[in-house]
Design a protein around this nucleic acid. Structure first.
Lengths: 336, 336
DNA sequence: GTCTCCTCCGTTAACGTTCACGTGGCCAGC
DNA sequence: GCTGGCCACGTGAACGTTAACGGAGGAGAC
């Protein structure tokens, strides 16, 4: 393997006895090269371990081979898994990924992240943007390249990809109703998050469809601490028998509240979480939860972006994936 | 904000009535420009919102303004937090970060990740490489640019940065001994991980220093499942009263085993974890654990890399940071 | 024969930046 | 007054790639 000094178009051209232009044509799969010449050039490229220089290409105004990913710097499980999914898919398409984290998701920092990425001549941008409020920021966004937002509100003006949390939340709620529980309480995520809002709506409509008046929602911040606090408040009411939490960590906090108040899970209290994070099978008891495949979401987002980059202005909307319910030991039939 | 077509060196030069070369000199802080000219050029650059083109620079063989980060695609909490720390520090230094994930960390995939990054003309590479075995791969590594490995074994031949897990583990173990426990058991991470090895050694030497023969180590894989399994095995022995686990998730699994076997924490069993992940304060009971600041580690790694990039061949070794013990409710005095 | 068209390929000039060198102008020293 | 040196700046070429254009050669139609 060569150190630093790699072969360029010129070396290949010399070795093949053709001009640089012909090599370039072979490289870009242009039609007007004879099969024979093409084969010869390809063989030499292989031989010299030739790889086109991204920067020369970008400079010339062509494709830079780099895409940008804007990712909120949280310690949540989801966004980073999406990142890995995007990276892997991009790698398979021979594209590099520049990551720009942004601590907040307001219009200003979003726009500055985009500006940073455009300075790096990215060909396209994926924004992981789970907040409802960032919809405004996204709508006003000025970007010279195709842009796609994951989890953004669907009216955000950029192409959006996400998951059908609403249906999944409905399934989870229905599961608890099917076990005989007279009602299901909900500890939501911050309702400023699109995912939280959708889950809440799925829960709400399911209860209403069953003729049950939805009890007040307790809004958490995704943290186990919030789940704990909400749990302490909720479980003071002895009639509460089933809780659907908008993520696993809040379910974990709820577990703790239940323990402190002497409520056994699932005997006295059924719990369904959301995410199916790596720990949830090992909670005490193992948590029934809704499985999300974040990496696949990232991969799907990339493929959609890729279609946009290749000029499909109106990519067919692929239907959002529906996360599926996984039933473990934290839910049981209502026995009172 | 302009779309796409940004001002180049030439526009600035024209507006300032100087040559491109002079602008370039201003840009790179070269000495041979008069103060007056420099001011004028700087003002115009500001005016035109000029930003140098990374790719033209890279093409010319200068600095590309991009560094690479190789990150194992795990769902562990640490590596991604390190990523965020690196990105933030790099952003402040006006550098972009290309991420290359690699599912395995053997010599081949590591070398191919490096090759990918070098194709993108990165100026330097940070490898998040927590495996002892990747030491061999790192030693044999061929890289044209400065390379730094985080968590790699210290003899890995590349500059390494890490944390003093050994001391931290010793502190954690000593804490349990100070509470009167006759011995401390250890559920380690995979001993192929440098961090796991160091924690194990810290635990071991502390016990030995106290005149206690270290009991056999139970080796886990960081998962809550492994902690659960190890816990079931360990807690069959009624004399086990204190366990130090190499991360929080295995402690969570141990909690579950304790629950299933009717051992109360901390009354019958004291537990200390490691990492202080976001959930550990909300376990039942809250987990005593060792806090690691992964983002700071990432930032520190970047600064060290930055010094290497600026030609300091022998950066002064900054001492590894020592993670600190946080005492919560999962540890209590020995009462038998 | 020659006119046209097509296929395959080369030449030239850019993209934005920096490097190596060159060139005036000014001042000091003899 | 001449040399030498330093300062401030300009000139030309190059990095690796591609777009636009042009040209050689052959095939086919009349």
């Amino acid at each position: 393997m060569q150190l630093g000094l790699r072969a360029g178009l010129a070396e290949v051209a010399r070795a093949a006895g053709v001009s640089k232009m012909t090599v370039s044509r072979v490289l870009n799969d242009r039609p007007d090269v004879s099969t024979e010449t093409r084969q010869r050039v390809l063989a030499i490229m292989e031989d010299l371990d030739f790889h086109p220089n991204r920067y020369a290409r970008a400079l010339k105004g062509g494709r830079s081979g780099v895409i940008g990913l804007i990712c909120p710097a949280t310690n949540f499980y989801g966004p980073t898994q999406v990142l890995f999914g995007v990276e892997e898919a991009a790698r398979n398409a021979n594209l590099a990924v520049i990551v720009a984290t942004s601590s907040s998701l307001d219009s200003h920092s979003l726009q500055s992240a985009i500006a940073r990425l455009e300075e790096s001549s990215v060909e396209a941008i994926i924004i992981i943007s789970p907040l409802v409020s960032s919809g405004d920021a996204l709508r006003g966004l000025v970007s010279a390249v195709p842009t796609l937002a994951i989890w953004a509100p669907s009216d955000a003006g950029v192409v959006v990809t996400g998951m059908d949390h609403r249906t999944a939340a409905a399934t989870a709620t229905q599961h608890l109703l099917d076990l005989g529980h007279p009602s299901v309480h909900h500890i939501s995520g911050p309702l400023d998050w699109t995912g939280a809002e959708q889950r809440m709506l799925g829960w709400q409509t399911t209860l209403e469809a069953a003729g049950i008046v939805p009890p007040p929602v307790l809004e958490g911040d995704w943290s186990a601490a919030a789940g704990h606090e909400a749990g302490l408040q909720l479980l003071r009411d002895p009639s509460v028998s089933a809780v659907f939490t908008a993520n696993d960590q809040m379910a974990l906090g709820l577990y703790r509240a239940a323990f402190e108040l002497g409520r056994r899970i699932p005997d006295d209290l059924s719990v369904v979480g959301y995410d199916d994070g790596p720990d949830s099978p090992h909670y005490t008891p193992p948590l029934s939860t809704v499985h999300q495949d974040f990496q696949m979401l990232g991969a799907r987002a990339f493929h959609r972006l890729n279609r946009m980059m290749n000029g499909e202005t109106k990519p067919e909307i692929d239907p959002d994936d529906t996360p599926r319910l996984i039933i473990r030991a934290s839910t049981a039939a209502y026995l009172r």
